[in-house]
């Protein structure tokens, strides 16, 4: 077990070899993502219950969201996931410079997403769509319209926190990659960061139709 430590410095002392460490880390990440699914699941349940109860006003409220920004952001995140998949491949093939570039590319696309989100949040504020902060609603049932926007901000906000964390991880990984940390088959950290990034992407793939498209035909 720790006799192999000298040969492979990135194998932690509790593992026999790099293969066991890689498998353990990957499984651990998958379990973590399962907890994340249930974490977001609570909000999805809340959305489902109130969508079912107040379907009409939810459709009305959904129409006021900016589908163009939301759609662009969907494309940005999907492309970023593709770039992330290329990064994982680059780390497996031991291509250091390409890995750094691709990781930073993914991070930049994450920043584009966040910037567009910021523009959109500001637009929502100007349009009086932020609950309790100058919220105005012309039409029936303003209380439940406000509830829709509360859920919208809670879900996209929680998602944005995850994107921000992901950008931080990508930047750190890019720095470590630049110093050659992921050479000689030690691509494990890039791989599990990739799993996280794809998860964040998939959450958005569900959020976009539920929040932006329910009101459109």
């Amino acid at each position: 077990m720790h006799s192999t430590t000298a040969a492979a410095p990135f194998v932690h002392e509790q593992f026999d070899d790099i293969e066991q460490q890689r498998k353990a880390a990957k499984l651990g990440m998958w379990i973590f993502l399962a907890t994340e699914v249930l974490f977001f699941g609570g909000l999805f349940l809340g959305y489902t219950v109130y969508r079912f109860t107040y379907g009409h006003v939810f459709v009305q409220a959904s129409r006021k969201l900016d589908v163009v920004i939301g759609g662009t952001n969907t494309a940005v995140l999907l492309i970023s996931s593709l770039v992330m998949a290329f990064s994982v491949r680059a780390s497996q093939l031991d291509q250091r410079r390409r890995l750094v570039g691709l990781l930073l590319g993914t991070a930049v696309l994450g920043c584009v997403f966040m910037s567009l989100k910021a523009v959109e949040y500001h637009k929502d504020y100007v349009d009086h769509l932020v609950p309790r902060l100058g919220f105005k609603w012309v039409g029936a049932d303003p209380g439940n319209a406000e509830l829709f926007y509360w859920i919208y901000f809670a879900m996209t906000g929680l998602h944005a926190i995850h994107v921000t964390v992901g950008i931080g991880i990508l930047v750190v990984l890019a720095m470590l990659a630049w110093r050659g940390r992921f050479r000689n088959g030690n691509y494990n950290p890039v791989e599990i960061a990739g799993l996280y990034w794809h998860f964040v992407d998939i959450v958005w793939v569900f959020l976009f139709p539920l929040l932006y498209l329910v009101g459109h035909r």
């Binding site: 974490f39 977001f40 699941g41 609570g42 809340g46 609950p131 509830l147 859920i151």
Partner: peptide
């Protein structure tokens, strides 16, 4: 546990923000 976590988080935000969930 994550379901408890999100429930508590929503409860806290509800109290601070004042929108009923």
């Amino acid at each position: 546990t994550p379901v408890l976590a999100i429930t508590l988080a929503v409860m806290c935000v509800e109290r601070i923000w004042g929108v009923g969930v």
